[in-house]
Amino acid sequence: MNEEKEVEEQSKPLVLEKLEEHHADALLAQDEMRGTVVVVVRKEQAYAVLEYLKTDAELAYTFLVDVTAVDNSQMESELMQFDYARFMVVYQLYSYQGQCRLRVKVPVHESDLSIPSVTALWKGANWLERETYDMFGINFEGHPDLRRILMPDDFEGHPLRKDYPLRGRGERERFNFDKQNV
């Protein structure tokens, strides 16, 4: 029994302890998914939390693996958890020092699709945020060059949104042939 208790105490990840200590008001939820700690963070404090996670000497999540988003508009069970925020912006972090991963999720309402850009923290966020803008229409405030990255410049709509038809709205037949979108 004693041993089991020890394991339980160890299993509380350092990052959760430190976040509860320094950014308790920003945390909306916390979870663990296949060994990866998941935290849901308020949009207003998202930048401060990410900055803390990167710059804290003990945590040192210096590697931003990915930025993407999820459209939960057809997932009632997900929607009701976070005040019916349609989108969830997801940051995947990795700490070389601690050799552990962390997933930070930020709910974004459709009425206000802006979220602070983290390009000032990780330069690699530049293209990742452009892709998220291209596919979901999330506006990253403070991004130095927020243009489409995958779709042609004159493309309309954001194709990874759930209300976008799989076969498109006729772009395959009506795309601009002469424009040098390269």
Binding site: P159, Y164, R167, G168, E171, R172, F177
Partner: peptide
């Protein structure tokens, strides 16, 4: 890949 972005046969062009 019957999707919004893929040419369904290059022989169209």
């Amino acid at each position: 890949f019957d999707t919004y972005t893929l040419i369904q046969g290059v022989d169209q062009f």
